[in-house]
Design a protein around this nucleic acid. Structure first.
Lengths: 245, 245
DNA sequence: CCGGGTACTTTGTTAGGACAAAGTGTTGAC
DNA sequence: GTCAACACTTTGTCCTAACAAAGTACCCGG
């Protein structure tokens, strides 16, 4: 399959390889390059687009990593069937809801300063007793309670306030403070809700709820957040896309 | 922090950049390059190890993607705190259990040939009515029931037998058939177990169970498996490590 | 003492070239 | 006719080289 010509802007601050990759992705999404079709070889492609082979390879590599293309030595580069292809991302519930038009709302139920417990300190890799803020929030989507969230943030990471948390997700605030979570370890499980939890979530006592605990670190490997959340299983589930090798 | 000299084998079929990356990872794991320490700049490093800068960059890039290093333009390359750094992987329950010495055992409860339902066909991107095999298995770990698993595999992907499934995980069989799952979409939720499910899992009726449905594709984008599993929440949870950007 | 601009350091991007390794297909010997 | 060796295609690895962009630190003028 011949790849249509691509207009590149060499004066743009956007890297060339990224311009090429984006354009290719667009062509695949639009069906211009149908699933299973083979691209021309790298050299021809690079030639025709007017970039060097390393740049062309980098663009292709980017799409291979994202699962849109498959390469085989001696064979060529093929378009993969256009299934879901976004890898798991580290996003916040608030962002997810806002993006899908669920009109998220947050009720901050409590916000207290307290030192880290041994358990949480261990998970975060910090010293027990480190000053921190503990918040408990109830998240609504489309007017319905969706999740009960307890989070703990070390005091030196971020100064939290009820007002800020009402209008923004915790991850927004962390981003604004320059402490972007870059790695997180999550454990997802299930259990029966306690009577108090069931009441807050508007579910009958003993309902099955989805639980998630998470520890998140920033780029420097510093723990920035610990969270223990429970979700209404009737209204929420985790969706993830995994890739191997 | 000076990186100790690294012995490279230029006659080895193992790529140079990979030799360098592996050695660096080892140094980090051993604490030779402590968390937070800064590496020399790329040029010096490349010089001293006797490789070109692109090769050096590629080795570093590899470790950056795996979360061991962080780079900042104008600043340098730093070792990240050695938290968990394995990204989410596409593994099978059987492998996971076997690796952690849980002595997995599988009871194949049924194995029937039946055409794909509209629902499953839609998820797998195949035509409704495509011949397939539907299996229901009960997975034990350490002598206790752990999961009830229903899987559907298209007939042209793999010929299944009760014997093979008793001794191996489904993913083992797929691998052996050259249909390695490379991408999967999972949805994890929770609900109350039905009486029949509760009985099989050895839990009281109405217990909260963890549910997982998954569709997996091979490198060519062909759907190879659909699964609908329920897990005893008291004995199992999903653990995942996420990275962003 | 403070602020801004400048020099320097370090990673990011791009180019062009060379050879190696893996698949595929074809041809030739038996 | 069959199978092995060879040629060809295509991606994989590696090198040298140059300039751009971002961040830091220093210095100098006010």
């Amino acid at each position: 399959m011949p790849v249509p010509d691509v207009a590149l802007d060499r004066s743009s601050p956007v890297p060339l390889y990224y311009q090429v990759a984006t354009r290719l992705e667009q062509l695949i999404d639009e069906g211009e390059l149908p699933a299973g079709s083979r691209l021309e070889n790298e050299i021809e492609l690079a030639d025709r687009l007017g970039v060097s082979r390393p740049t062309m390879r980098r663009a292709i590599q980017y799409l291979v990593e994202r699962g849109l293309l498959v390469r085989k030595r001696g064979v060529g580069t093929q378009v993969v069937h256009p299934k879901v292809r976004r890898p798991v991302e580290l996003t916040s519930l608030y962002d997810d809801l806002a993006k899908s038009g669920q009109d998220p709302r947050t009720e901050v139920r409590s916000l207290v300063s307290e030192p880290l417990s041994d358990h949480v300190a261990g998970l975060m890799g910090l010293a027990p007793g480190t000053p921190a803020t503990r918040i408990e929030r109830l998240r609504y989507a489309a007017g319905e309670p969706l999740a009960l969230m307890t989070n703990i943030v070390p005091a030196d990471v971020l100064e939290l306030s009820v007002e800020a948390l009402t209008d923004h997700g915790l991850y927004d605030l962390l981003r604004a403070a320059g402490r972007v979570p870059r790695m997180a370890r999550q454990v997802v499980g299930a259990r029966a809700a306690t009577p108090a939890e069931a009441r807050l979530l508007g579910e009958p006592a003993g309902t099955a709820v989805l639980t998630m605990t998470r520890t998140a670190w920033d780029a420097g490997g510093q723990a920035v957040e610990y969270g223990s959340h429970i979700y209404r299983a009737s209204r929420y589930s985790f969706e993830l896309t995994l890739t191997s090798a």
